[in-house]
Amino acid sequence: MAIRGASIEFREVRKTYGDFVALESFSMDVAPGEFMTLLGPSGSGKTTALNSLAGFVDINQGDILIDGVSIARMPTEKRNIGMVFQNYSLFPHRNVLANVAFPLEMRGVAKSEILNRSMKALEMVRLDGLAKRMPHELSGGQKQRVAFARAVVFEPRVLLMDEPLGALDLKLREALQIEIKQYQREIGCTVIYVTHDQGEALALSDRLAVMEKGAIRQLGTPEDLYDRPNSRFVAEFIGSNNILKIRGQTEEGVLVEGLGVVRIPAMSGHAGGFVALRPEHIRRSSGENWPVTVRQAVFFGDAVRYVVEAKDGTTFSFVESRQPGTEISAPGASIGIAFDEDNITLLPA
């Protein structure tokens, strides 16, 4: 099964529900075959953007195009878009094969071709041996694989996925993340994926858009957004971060709460702003350049997460990989920390 993905364009899309603005000037281009994730908190507009592309909601202004053709006023059934939902939406009275075959039946495909294409879709998700089982006989992961097979069996060029792994436990979710990316590469369709789980977004996406209040706050590769957040909102939403206030600027660098003078170039517009320093970029040091007091130590098996307090009372965290025989510092212990100043990100006020 090989599908050529379609390009997608959102052009200044606006969607309101009464006085509530769900999307405001929403613009985004998605390349053919790209895996794009919409990431944001509840109410940020990510599902509204997905549903407007699917045709489940009508937009108030703007346009949406697939391969350069406007679909904003096109009926849902004419858009030829695959959908995978969190709740699977399988027909309980149909077996696995019949569930996967349903989209082909609705499109009037010949019976012989329906069987062939449905079995190929099940082979792709490694469920061809369960074709005769009923949905209630399947595990959560198997149900999600059936839902994926059903969504791609009619070879849509665009596949929309709305928090498809949200109902699964952590280990199964992580396993299916790898499989979803593998399936998408095999079939080549364009995917728009909605989630509020930033770890999931980082693992799956070619690019991701962080949304807040109906607008995109930053769009880029996972590496771009993780390493170079453009705002405090993005820095706090993507991964763990220490957000520390800039107290002023000196000839030597920037005066940061908890850290003192940090030798990073002072930038106009950042006075009164913030810096971001990720916990994994801080390490224990035998020197006393930045002495701190341990306030909390949380054991995670392969690592220990420390909450420490600087001389000025500022608290922040860092993560230390645990080696055999490594002693965990108890609350109240005095230790030194260090970090590479290149890993500090300046954020606007």
Rank of each mutant, 00 (worst) to 15 (best):
I8R: 09
F10D: 11
E12A: 14
F20I: 11
A22P: 14
E24A: 13
S25D: 15
F26P: 07
F26M: 09
S27C: 03
A31C: 05
F35N: 14
T37C: 10
F56I: 13
D63Y: 03
L65S: 02
G68C: 03
I71C: 08
P75S: 04
E77I: 09
R79D: 14
V84Q: 15
F85M: 09
Q86A: 13
N87E: 11
Y88W: 15
S89A: 15
N95W: 04
N95D: 15
V100K: 04
A101D: 02
L104S: 08
V109E: 03
A110K: 13
K111N: 06
S112N: 11
I114V: 07
I114L: 05
L115N: 04
S118P: 11
S118K: 07
S118H: 10
S118L: 08
S118W: 08
K120G: 13
L122T: 09
E123T: 07
R126F: 01
L127K: 01
D128Q: 12
L130S: 12
L130V: 00
L130A: 09
K132T: 15
P135R: 06
H136S: 00
H136F: 02
G140S: 00
Q142L: 09
R145S: 03
R145Q: 05
V146P: 13
A147K: 04
A151F: 02
V153C: 01
F154G: 04
L159Q: 13
D162M: 14
D162W: 09
L168C: 15
D169V: 01
L170N: 08
L172H: 12
E174W: 05
Q177N: 15
E179S: 09
K181N: 12
G188K: 06
C189N: 13
Y193M: 05
V194T: 09
H196W: 08
E200V: 13
A201G: 14
A201H: 10
L202G: 10
L208N: 04
K213W: 07
K213Y: 03
L219P: 08
G220R: 02
T221V: 02
P222H: 04
E223P: 01
D224F: 05
D224E: 15
P229T: 04
N242T: 04
I243T: 07
K245A: 12
R247Q: 14
R247T: 05
T250F: 01
E251Y: 02
E251V: 06
E252I: 01
G253L: 04
V254A: 00
G260E: 03
G260V: 11
A266G: 10
G269D: 06
A271H: 04
V275M: 10
P279H: 10
I282T: 07
E288D: 04
E288L: 03
P291R: 03
V292K: 00
V294P: 11
A297V: 12
V298H: 12
V298P: 02
F300T: 00
G301K: 11
V304N: 01
V307C: 11
V307K: 12
T314P: 09
F316C: 13
V319N: 00
V319L: 05
G325S: 11
E327P: 00
E327M: 08
S329H: 15
A330F: 03
A330I: 10
P331F: 05
I335S: 06
G336S: 06
D340W: 00
N343C: 03
N343L: 08
T345V: 13
L346P: 03
P348A: 06
A349L: 00
